[in-house]
């Protein structure tokens, strides 16, 4: 993984800061950096999104292709994940250098989507045992500035939200042979419900405390972190410990409690904002359609649109940390 070399003094500075709930960039331990989400960035995909979280920059393209259902699930479509750690993120990823990290992230994505609730796979089936939609979710890592997993999960969710799959009909004639008919209207397509698609929250253990949305420098100070994928309803779909260090069970429970406490108490304003921070790192979501890196005419839709479109928790979120 892309990493930075820190001196002992720098590490002490970061660790002591975290103990005082003050991080190098001025955030508290539970604050996310600014998130920018853009959808519809690549026009020859079924759906695409680009997410920028600090210096982390992720581009996700979803392509829908027709395939055959898996034998054990004859009436469901499926998702395929591929993560490309491009050399532009760091020269270490040149050639095959990024393959290990890419496979690790892809496997994590498989795991967090490996349940019935995340996405309605039955809607991807065209005719049982014969045809289904296969969604190829391709993640491209453009820049790496820490907290990859969270940013990727947000980008995948946004890209799936943006995905339009053409509507097809199966016609059967008297002899029993089947024909697939594609709708003539290009706007006649199905959209996936991404309400239950989880987002990953990575809690990084630094010293005796844990932080969310760690930068590269903070990741270098942390020995282990806990990766939790959680939906907006508070359902946890996957937990993983990552990193070379170890975590004691107590601190794992403490971290989870922190998450759960924030997830369950919706009424309190203070907690609602904490919940928002945990379920989907908002802070500031710029929601732009159809403008990539080109000259930017950034249009921030109203907050309500942003939330409904990304299926953010339905509370009035405090979008600016500290406000």
């Amino acid at each position: 993984m892309a990493s930075v070399a820190l001196s002992e003094a720098e590490k002490v500075y970061i660790v002591h800061g975290v103990q005082e709930d003050l991080r190098v960039d001025g955030r508290g331990c539970e604050d996310y950096r600014c998130v920018e989400v853009e959808t519809d960035v690549v026009s020859n995909t079924s759906g695409s999104a680009r997410v920028k979280l600090g210096h982390t920059d992720i581009l996700v393209g979803v392509k829908a292709e027709m395939g055959t259902p898996k034998l054990e699930k004859p009436n469901e479509g499926y998702l395929e994940f591929f993560v490309d750690c491009s050399a532009s993120a760091t020269p270490e990823f040149e050639g095959r250098g990024g393959d290990d990290l890419g496979t690790e992230i892809a496997n994590t994505l498989y795991r967090i989507f490996n349940n019935k609730s995340s996405i309605d796979l039955k809607s991807l089936c065209i005719s049982p045992r014969e045809h289904c939609w296969v969604l190829y979710v391709d993640v491209l890592l453009l820049e790496c500035g820490g907290n990859l997993f969270d940013a990727i999960s947000v980008a995948v969710k946004a890209a799936l939200f943006n995905t339009r799959i053409p509507r097809v009909r199966v016609l059967e004639d008297e002899e029993g042979s089947k024909d697939i008919e594609l709708s003539d209207d290009p706007y006649d397509c199905i959209q996936l419900s991404v309400e239950n698609v989880p987002c990953i929250v990575t809690l990084c253990k630094i010293g005796y405390r844990h932080v969310v949305d760690a930068t590269l420098q903070e990741e270098a100070c942390s020995l282990a972190s806990l990766l939790v994928s959680v939906t907006s309803k508070g359902v946890v779909t996957c937990i993983r410990k990552v990193g070379k260090g170890s975590l004691d069970p107590e601190s794992i429970f403490e971290m989870l409690e922190h998450l759960c406490m924030a997830v369950t108490s919706k009424t309190l304003f203070r907690l609602a904002s904490a919940w928002a921070r945990c379920c989907m790192p908002p802070c500031r979501v710029f929601y732009t359609r159809r403008r990539a890196w080109g000259p930017r005419d950034r249009k921030s839709d109203s907050w309500a649109d942003v939330h409904s479109s990304l299926q953010l928790p339905n509370v009035r979120l405090l979008l600016f940390p500290g406000s």
Binding site: S48, G61, E65, F82, L140
Partner: peptide
């Protein structure tokens, strides 16, 4: 120099970038 093209860049999905 390294040239790569995203798997979703072309009309048909590429297998390797």
């Amino acid at each position: 120099c390294q040239y790569s093209s995203a798997t979703f860049s072309t009309g048909e999905r590429k297998r390797r970038p």
